[in-house]
């Protein structure tokens, strides 16, 4: 009433601080739950890693930073042997399973659909569908029988078992890569008079490269991390790093275990990060 001169605006003045975005997707408590999951997934591992650098023998009280436990772990003959066994087995399993998986992936994507394709998928993925403990004792039974019949012993059994359960892991990314690759490039090469084998070595294989690398890395990580099957079938002198760690935990918790565990985790994480980068490349 005091200021009749300024015309009243037709609308109320926009309020000072109002919400400008309405997020209809948001659900109450979901963000907190997601963060809780991340904390749950990572806190234990981070604590483990932290205490691997603890100067004290205690895995409870932090006293100071040191690399002593890594030095101790690297000097430990048991750990060194186990690491060597792990690498040997994983390399063998990776090579065999990647070759077999690549061939199988070519057969299931680069030829026409065939009768029994479902069965083939089923067989290749079988190691993923059956509880590992069942596969473990079944394989143990077979190997025991073969050993008795042939008298042959050695680490070959363990390597073969690893190769078998690594195949589906190697197969997945290779098949995925083949399915997204168009046939046109291969057809173009064939059109330019390249014989099938040349088409394969000059066109298919280089394009498939990232898929094969991804498959091999997965196979390596899976073999390196295996516990149950190895525990069941590894003979004396065939202790892998995870089996060594399991034994050590059963004997009592020491920071040395934390150090070895951290190394093993670091190897896996590095490989998986590399894998992510390779896959990013693949998507482009």
């Amino acid at each position: 009433m005091a200021e009749p001169m300024t015309a009243m605006p037709a609308s109320p003045q926009p309020r000072q601080r109002r919400r400008l975005v309405r997020d209809l997707k948001a659900m109450p408590g979901f963000t907190a739950t997601a963060w809780l999951c991340i904390v749950t997934l990572y806190l234990p591992i981070l604590v483990l890693i932290a205490f691997s650098f603890n100067e004290n023998r205690s895995v409870v009280l932090w006293t100071g930073f040191s690399l002593d436990w890594y030095a101790k772990a690297l000097e430990n003959d048991g750990i060194r042997n186990a690491a060597w066994v792990s690498v040997k087995v994983a390399l063998f399993a990776t090579v065999i399973s990647t070759i077999a998986a690549t061939m199988a992936a070519l057969a299931t994507t680069r030829t026409k659909p065939f009768i029994g394709q479902g069965l083939v998928y089923g067989i290749i993925n079988q190691p993923l569908m059956i509880p590992e403990i069942v596969t473990a004792i079944a394989t143990l039974s077979l190997f025991a029988l073969v050993k008795k019949l042939t008298g042959l012993n050695g680490i070959g059994y363990l390597m073969l078992a690893h190769a078998a359960f690594c195949i589906p892991f190697a197969y997945m990314p290779i098949r995925a890569r083949l399915e997204t690759m168009t046939l046109t490039l291969e057809q173009a090469a064939a059109d330019l008079y390249a014989p099938p084998l040349k088409v394969f070595t000059l066109v298919t294989l280089p394009l498939l490269g990232p898929g094969i690398v991804a498959g091999a890395m997965l196979a390596f990580v899976v073999s390196l991390d295996d516990v149950i099957i190895t525990l069941m079938i590894a003979g004396p002198g065939e202790t892998t790093l995870p089996i060594y760690i399991l034994g050590a935990i059963r004997r009592g918790i020491t920071p040395e275990i934390n150090a070895v565990s951290t190394i093993l985790v670091a190897v896996s994480v590095l490989l998986v990060m590399l894998l992510f980068i390779v896959q990013r490349r693949m998507q482009r």
């Binding site: 591992i45 483990l48 390196l224 991390d225 995870p242 565990s261 985790v265 896996s268 994480v269």
Partner: peptide, 11 residues
Amino acid sequence: WTNLLIRTYAM
């Protein structure tokens, strides 16, 4: 992709 045994041990 990290070792289940180690994760369980960490828990």
